[in-house]
Amino acid sequence: MEAADALQPAVILLDIGMPELDGYATCRLIREQPWGGAVVVIALTGYGQQQDRQQTKEAGFDGHLVKPVDVEELLNMLTDLLDKEQTGTESA
């Protein structure tokens, strides 16, 4: 959180299964920050069931990718989400 607060990046790729503070809680904290609504947050996780995707959506993630991540899929998602962010339309 300290690094994200200092850098305020345009995109954060966030793992779900982290010790102490998992990705769901981290994403919720990011969204609470003044800059957190503008950042695109994508879950990179080993969890890929529909229930897992629903949890990431509810936590405030913009996208969900299952490891190992296909680079082309990541680039397509980034392009789509960043385009939507720039045009002000909602992300899927």
Rank of each mutant, 00 (worst) to 15 (best):
M77F: 07
K57G: 10
L7G: 05
Q51N: 10
G46H: 04
L29P: 00
N76I: 12
E73Y: 03
P68C: 10
G88L: 12
Q50V: 13
V41P: 00
T26W: 03
I30F: 01
Q50Y: 03
L65C: 04
N76V: 14
C27H: 00
L44A: 07
G88M: 11
Y24G: 02
V71F: 13
R31I: 06
Q55L: 15
T45S: 07
R31G: 10
M77C: 12
D52N: 10
A6S: 12
T56H: 01
T87L: 13
E72G: 15
G46D: 10
G88I: 08
E85M: 11
S91F: 05
D52P: 05
G46K: 00
V69G: 04
L13S: 05
R28L: 03
L82H: 08
G46Q: 04
V39H: 02
Q55H: 12
L82Q: 13
L13T: 09
A4N: 01
D80I: 10
P68I: 05
V71A: 15
L74N: 02
Q51G: 04
L81E: 11
D83C: 09
L75N: 14
G23D: 03
V66L: 06
A59I: 04
A4W: 06
G46E: 07
D62R: 04
A43W: 09
D83L: 11
L7V: 09
Q55M: 14
A59N: 04
Y47H: 14
L21H: 05
G48D: 13
L14F: 07
L21V: 14
L21I: 14
Q54M: 14
D70I: 10
L13F: 02
D83G: 06
D70L: 10
V66K: 06
E90G: 15
G37Y: 00
M1D: 06
M18V: 03
